[in-house]
């Protein structure tokens, strides 16, 4: 029972960070119908940037978050304008290829800049825990989960209470309608992409604090993030949070009770099964081109 509770604690804490990282992916899909396969690579990039700030200036990874978010916002904007935008007219599977290409380029760039060795950030709280009775809460995970909640709430507020949020939602529901009421869909798309990458940046910074980073791990991340939004429903923010919790807890349960090899398969199995059995996920709509039958 103690082991089970401990596993659930770890799963939920991991899930919070997953949720933050997946929020950008689902937002970008919701507005643009672009599945950003490079999302995992952007996360690792943010982690490496955090690592550099920490190793060069001793900047605490959590304090670096605002700065990383700004930088990632800029990078997201540039990548969108430079590459993603040009593929929007073509078939959805083509945009998948473009973002997959971006992921490979990012992996290569990170390898060149930071090398292919693993980099890890160690601060006084990264290896410590808060102990409550028989349970332990890793400090860094607690902090990361708290920050994830804060950023997610901010994102929710941005989307639901501001003009920009209304414009984004308008563009996601009806592109020509949004144009009609004076929303520049092109600008909103670029902004959404950049915002999605910026929130991911916050998650990436914490990723750097939680575990060692290697450029090649982005496949694992994109698999996990895709599984989350497939499960939660493409384009749904609450769905992403629920999906993230499910994935986080399932991975931990699989490690403890099935075997530590299984977490690798969990995201792929979920993608495979959900897309076949219930393509709309828990809370989302089906992709338009799924509506064949």
């Amino acid at each position: 029972m103690i082991a089970l509770t401990q596993t659930l604690i770890l799963g939920v804490l991991a899930g919070a960070v997953y949720a933050l990282m997946a929020s950008g992916l689902t937002l970008i899909f919701g507005v643009m119908r672009v599945i950003n396969i490079a999302h995992g690579a952007f996360a690792v990039l943010a982690a490496f940037l955090t690592y550099s700030l920490w190793s060069a200036f001793g900047l605490d990874p959590l304090l670096a978050i605002p700065f990383i978010m700004v930088v990632m916002f800029g990078i997201g904007w540039v990548v969108y304008q430079g590459a993603v935008r040009h593929s929007r007219g073509s078939h959805v599977s083509m945009t998948v290829l473009v973002t997959f290409g971006i992921a490979l380029v990012l992996e290569g760039v990170m390898g060149i800049i930071w090398g292919n060795r693993s980099a890890s950030i160690r601060t006084d709280y990264t290896d410590a825990s808060v102990e409550v009775g028989p349970f332990f809460f890793p400090q860094v995970q607690l902090l990361a989960a708290a920050i994830a909640v804060v950023v997610l709430i901010a994102l929710y507020f941005l989307l639901n209470k501001t003009w920009l949020g209304r414009a984004i939602r308008a563009a996601s529901v009806n592109e020509s309608g949004a144009l009609l009421v004076g929303v520049s869909v092109a600008a909103v798309a670029a902004l959404t992409f950049a915002i999605g990458i910026a929130t991911l940046g916050a998650g990436g910074a914490m990723l750097g604090a939680i575990q060692p980073i290697v450029p090649g791990t982005h496949y694992q991340w994109i698999a996990r993030l895709l599984a989350i939004i497939v499960l939660g429903g493409f384009g749904s923010l609450p769905g992403a949070v629920i999906g993230a919790m499910i994935i986080g807890v399932t991975e931990m349960l699989a490690t403890t009770y099935v075997g530590s090899a299984w977490p690798v398969a969990v995201p792929f199995l979920i993608i495979f099964i959900v897309l076949i059995v219930r393509p709309q996920g828990i809370m989302g709509a089906r992709l338009r081109e799924d509506l064949v039958s």
């Binding site: 992709l287 081109e289 799924d290």
Partner: peptide
């Protein structure tokens, strides 16, 4: 039979 386009690529 159930999926095409982008979700098929992901699958």
């Amino acid at each position: 039979y159930r999926s095409r386009g982008a979700s098929f690529v992901i699958i």
